[in-house]
């Protein structure tokens, strides 16, 4: 596989095949936002530090600012727009787990993956995963309550 210049690629996003015109050096985040209109994933640091741009690639959380769009070819991408009535969305609403909401897509996506992959995650695993995302508004307690409420549902 090679991409030498700007060209059209096909991505599988939220269960749909979408095509986009990309430069090989374009980031997945920019392509999702600017070309596919999926602006749920947010740019904040574009340096891998904050997690606001997190999406799922084959079920795993990935910071889409540190992935090339061409790298995503052949993988299944889920963005926040692809979650519909996921228990975590309800939990975030119920627990007031956001204020400005700018970090929220990334947090929910990461939590969602965690709940799927480790439905019985213990505190250490939750911390390890969720430390990948920054929130400047909340004190994290509400986010913690939201993830816990979903994990315990999984257990019961």
């Amino acid at each position: 596989m090679k991409f030498l210049d700007t060209g059209t690629i096909e991505l599988l996003v939220n269960g749909e095949k979408r095509s986009a015109l990309v430069r090989p050096s374009d980031l997945l985040l920019d392509v999702l936002r600017d070309q596919l209109g999926l602006t749920g994933a947010k740019p904040s640091c574009k340096n891998g530090d904050c997690g606001a741009c997190t999406v799922l690639v084959d079920g795993w959380p990935v910071k889409s600012c540190l992935m090339l769009a061409v790298e995503a070819i052949g993988h299944e991408i889920i963005t926040i727009e692809g979650l519909q009535n996921a228990p975590l969305q309800q939990a975030f609403v119920d627990e007031f787990a956001f204020q400005c909401g700018y970090c929220t897509s990334g947090f929910i996506i990461n939590c969602h993956a965690l709940a799927r992959i480790h439905p019985k995650a213990d505190e250490a695993v939750i911390r390890e995963w969720l430390q990948s995302n920054l929130c400047r508004c909340t004190g994290y307690e509400e986010i913690s309550k939201a993830i816990h409420s979903v994990l315990s549902t999984h257990k019961s």
Binding site: G40, E81, F92, V93, F98, S105
Partner: peptide, 10 residues
């Protein structure tokens, strides 16, 4: 605006 914020629509 909660539901818009948890769905990426905000």
């Amino acid at each position: 605006e909660s539901w818009n914020k948890v769905t990426g629509a905000a």
